[in-house]
């Protein structure tokens, strides 16, 4: 077992020092046990501590280390180095304001997420223990609740690039359907009203970049289709 050299081309930008962003060529040695892209990035950070990126759980649960890896959004912590063509080109998530290097400002993304009220609304008196669901009703939430809000999908969506302030985006719409589909929620009509807008929902042109990049293998396009289906049900 020997060490392996991993070559990188990394987007660098420090707004306090750099006039404009540039790509930095850099390489790092990794041990045989260090197989994920994040392992190499952590080693790079030791080599050059000005390199900035977000990471936390390092196992694909927190969604912090989403970045554009060789042109495709993904999580560094669950991407195998061996699957990537070198030099590995790393850029911040597309279409978002860059704070520094691979760190982007997620304000707009979370604004859209909050706009769909990501919590169960139920004004009826709460039961003594908890609001129950049948196993079938609960099943409807599978493939929806697993979203970790890494923003890989929304920032790979051209419709979100053009209208991040008006289009809710795949992540937000997946979350929207998660609460529309929840039988414990009593505001389904308000939720549909909230999305009945040429921008908020109907900017989705079924490009399906979101499905292509989702590190949790979720399907926002399918959720969006189900929202549209419910809207048709309401008028037809």
């Amino acid at each position: 077992m020997t060490t392996q050299t991993v070559k990188f081309s990394i987007y660098r930008y420090d707004p306090d020092k750099d006039k404009k962003p540039y790509m930095q060529d850099i390489s790092v040695e990794v041990e045989p046990g260090e197989r994920k892209l994040l392992d190499a990035l952590v080693k790079l950070k030791v080599k050059d501590d000005t390199l900035s990126f977000r990471r936390s759980c390092r196992e694909g649960v927190c969604g912090s280390d989403a970045m554009n890896i060789n042109g495709k959004n993904g999580l560094a912590c669950i991407t195998d180095i061996d699957t990537l063509k070198q030099p590995i080109e790393l850029r911040p998530l597309p279409g978002m304001p860059v704070v520094r290097d691979l760190i982007v400002d997620m304000t707009q993304f979370f604004k859209q997420y909050h706009s769909i009220k990501p919590y169960v609304v139920n004004d009826t008196p709460p039961p003594e223990k908890e609001r129950l669901q049948s196993p079938e009703d609960r099943k409807e939430l599978d493939g929806l609740y697993e979203c970790i809000l890494c923003a890989c999908c929304s920032t790979s969506c051209p419709s979100f690039w053009w209208n991040p302030d008006k289009f809710v985006g795949p992540a937000g719409l997946l979350a929207a359907y998660r609460f529309i589909a929840d039988t414990r929620d009593t505001t389904i009509n308000e939720r549909l009203d909230n999305l009945e807008d040429p921008y908020r929902l109907f900017r989705c042109h079924t490009i399906m970049n979101c499905v292509d990049v989702c590190p949790k293998e979720l399907n926002p396009t399918k959720a969006i289709g189900k929202i549209k289906e419910l809207m048709i049900k309401r008028v037809a």
Binding site: D193, D197, P198, Y199, L201, F202, I232
Partner: peptide, 15 residues
């Protein structure tokens, strides 16, 4: 302040 909620979209999409 963004003005949103035109309350149309479904009709055009369906059309």
């Amino acid at each position: 302040r963004h003005v949103i909620g035109a309350h149309y979209g479904l009709r055009d999409w369906l059309l």
